[in-house]
Computed example of a mutant assay.
Amino acid sequence: MTTQTFRVEDIHCGGCENAIRKALTRLGGVRDVAPDSATNQVRVDFDSSQTSTAAIAERLAAAGYPVIE
Rank of each mutant, 00 (worst) to 15 (best):
R7G: 00
V8M: 06
V8P: 00
V8A: 02
V8C: 01
E9R: 10
E9K: 04
D10I: 03
D10K: 12
I11A: 06
I11T: 03
C13G: 05
C13M: 08
G14W: 12
G14S: 00
G14E: 05
G14V: 04
G14Y: 12
G15K: 00
G15I: 05
C16G: 08
C16F: 14
C16P: 06
N18H: 11
A19I: 09
A19E: 03
I20P: 02
R21D: 03
R21W: 13
R21P: 00
R21K: 08
R21E: 11
K22C: 04
A23K: 06
A23N: 00
A23C: 05
A23M: 07
A23E: 11
L24C: 05
L24D: 09
L24T: 02
T25L: 15
T25Y: 15
R26H: 15
R26S: 15
R26F: 13
R26N: 14
L27I: 13
L27Q: 11
L27V: 15
L27A: 06
G28D: 15
G29T: 04
G29P: 01
G29V: 02
G29W: 15
G29L: 09
G29R: 05
V30N: 02
V30L: 07
R31F: 15
D32N: 13
D32V: 12
D32G: 08
D32S: 15
D32L: 15
D36L: 13
D36Q: 12
D36P: 06
S37Q: 13
S37H: 14
S37F: 15
A38K: 09
A38S: 12
A38T: 10
A38D: 14
T39Y: 15
N40V: 05
N40W: 04
N40Q: 15
Q41I: 08
Q41D: 09
V42M: 04
V42G: 02
V42W: 08
R43L: 10
R43I: 13
V44E: 10
D45Q: 09
F46T: 09
F46M: 03
F46A: 00
F46E: 07
F46C: 05
D47E: 10
D47L: 03
D47S: 04
D47V: 02
D47C: 04
S49C: 03
S49M: 05
Q50C: 01
Q50H: 00
T51S: 01
T51Q: 05
A54G: 06
A54H: 05
I56D: 09
I56K: 03
I56R: 00
A57P: 03
A57K: 03
E58D: 14
E58Y: 11
E58V: 11
E58Q: 14
E58A: 12
R59N: 08
R59M: 12
R59I: 12
L60E: 03
L60I: 05
A61Y: 09
A62T: 09
A62N: 07
